[in-house]
């Protein structure tokens, strides 16, 4: 068996409702995500998506594409740019080293701006 060349993509249309739902899931109601008035006065100028919501979209995409033969083992990312609430997030990963099962992981906006970038390493399913 060989690792898939691409994992995903998987898209999510973010909104105040998804920010509040993800806040409920993680107990993270940081006003930078969930309070548009507070966020408007922050350096970002508007509410931004929870970073791990996009990251989890990439992990979800990877898990769906890798199962059942493989599984996600390691992830290392930077939340490089904010993703404004209201934007569509698209997440996935591209194989960069078939020998080690290493992928370039990304989350991007419709204009191609990458908001999360890093690596994901897969392994045979435990």
């Amino acid at each position: 068996m060989t690792y898939p060349e691409t994992l995903g993509p998987l898209a999510l249309v973010s909104s105040h409702a998804t920010a509040m739902a993800y806040g409920e899931l993680t107990a993270d109601f940081n006003p930078i995500h969930c309070d548009p008035d507070f966020a408007a006065k922050s350096p970002f100028g508007r509410a931004i998506c929870h970073g791990t919501m996009g990251l989890n979209l990439a992990i979800e995409a990877a898990e769906r594409a890798l199962a059942p033969a493989y599984a996600v083992r390691d992830v290392k990312i930077r939340f490089s740019r904010p993703a404004p609430v209201g934007e569509t997030l698209t997440a996935g990963a591209t194989l960069t080293d078939a020998a080690t099962g290493t992928y370039a992981l990304w989350v991007e906006l419709p204009d191609g701006t990458r908001t999360t970038e890093g690596t994901l390493t897969a392994e045979p399913a435990p």
């Binding site: 940081n30 930078i32 507070f38 922050s42 970073g51 083992r73 992830v75 290392k76 930077r78 939340f79």
Partner: peptide, 11 residues
């Protein structure tokens, strides 16, 4: 309020 999550590693 206003902490920013900048990076993450996971295993």
């Amino acid at each position: 309020p206003g902490n920013v999550h900048a990076g993450q590693t996971l295993s």
